[in-house]
Amino acid sequence: MTANAHDLQSHHVGITVEDLEAVLPFYRDVLGFDVADRFQVDGEAFSTAVGVDDAAANFVHLEADGIRVEIVEYEPQARASPDAGLNQPGAKHLGFTVADLESFYADLPDDVETLSEPQTTATGNSILFLRDPEDNLVEVLEIAE
C-alpha cells in the first residue's frame, strides 16, 4: 500500500531550535507568521515516539498563507550538529515566495543576516537566503512570470 492510498496530507514543517523565545520573533515579526498555537508535550509516549529518553518539548505553531511552521525546543537538548552548507547532504531550508523581493529585502531589519543581496538566477526567479537567529536558512523567492 502506498502513502497515496492513505490520503497523506501535509500538516507542518518543523524546526528544532535551542531557544524558542529567541527565534520566535524572527518568524512572527520579520516573516509575518501568525502564532496559531503554543503547547508543551512530555511523558512516556512522547519520549518513545521521538526516541529521546525523558523528552519534553515546547512547541509554537506558526501559520501564513496555508503553511504551518512548527518551532520546537526540546529538553534534554542534544549536542548541536555542525552547520551544513546548502550543497551538503542533509542541508535544509524553508522556502517562501513574495511578490516583490527587492522591497522585502529593503524592509528587513538591519540585524537579519542574509547570504547575499537578492539574485536573479538562470530560471528568471529572484532568490534571497536569510538566517534566523540560530542560523537556520530561509529562502525567499520572487517567481518570474
Rank of each mutant, 00 (worst) to 15 (best):
L101E: 03
P118I: 14
A99V: 07
A49W: 01
D135C: 02
A36W: 07
H61E: 11
H6V: 07
S47R: 00
M1V: 15
R131Y: 14
A36D: 11
L94Q: 06
N87W: 13
L31M: 11
V41D: 01
V72P: 02
T123A: 12
L115H: 07
S126D: 06
P133R: 06
A78P: 01
E117G: 09
R131V: 02
L141E: 11
H93R: 12
I143F: 04
E139N: 06
F33E: 03
F59C: 03
A22N: 11
E21G: 03
D65P: 04
E134C: 06
G90C: 07
V30A: 10
H11K: 13
R38K: 14
V13P: 00
V72F: 14
L86M: 14
N136I: 02
V52C: 01
E102T: 15
E75S: 12
F59A: 02
T114Y: 08
I127N: 08
D42E: 13
T16G: 05
R38M: 09
L137M: 14
Q88E: 15
E134V: 09
R131D: 01
D42W: 00
V52H: 01
V52K: 04
A91S: 15
T120A: 04
P109G: 06
E63K: 14
G14T: 09
D132R: 12
T16K: 10
G85L: 09
D110G: 06
T114L: 07
T121A: 14
V41R: 05
G66V: 06
E113Y: 07
M1K: 14
H6K: 10
L115E: 13
E142Q: 13
V52T: 08
V30N: 08
V23Q: 10
F33M: 10
N87A: 10
G32N: 09
I143H: 04
P133T: 11
V98N: 09
G32A: 06
A122E: 14
I15F: 07
V13D: 05
P25G: 11
L94I: 15
P133D: 08
V13Y: 14
E18V: 12
L24Q: 15
A55N: 05
I67T: 14
L20E: 04
A80N: 05
L31H: 08
V98K: 07
S126C: 07
A3Q: 11
D107L: 09
K92P: 00
E142S: 01
D100Y: 12
L141N: 09
E75R: 05
D42M: 01
T120Q: 10
V72T: 11
H12L: 12
G14S: 15
I71Q: 01
E113W: 03
T121I: 05
E142M: 01
